[in-house]
Amino acid sequence: MSIDKNSRYRSSHEWARKDGARVVSGISDHAQDALGDIVFVELPEVGKVLKQGEAFGVVESVKAASDVYMPMSGKILAVNEALSGDPALVNREPYSGGWFIAYEPTNPSEWDGLLTPEAYEAEAGKE
């Protein structure tokens, strides 16, 4: 299981990483491994405003589908269009090419409540 040291995490396996004023999110290596080959990712419309913990999309494998949740509240600025043509990006590069959304955080202090890489690694390792 690889962990991106520059990200923070939710226990539901989403990561969040600061990128200037934006935050970028996707799912962790642990999550993509548990789901298996990703066949489809449903992403929100740009401009949508979502609260922390709200489902913003769905990630599907052949035999499973999981909601993915906002690590922080925010307004969607961009979604990863490449995933529609190549959903396997999530399997290959969960922390880079396989990102899901970029958003403007509406409550930046939520960052401090997210799991640190070490805390997430310890929690995910128990599963």
């Binding site: 599907e60 052949v62 499973a64 589908a65």
Partner: peptide, 12 residues
Amino acid sequence: LSAREQHIRREK
């Protein structure tokens, strides 16, 4: 495209 269906997504 079975992930749409009840045996996988249940209440969703």
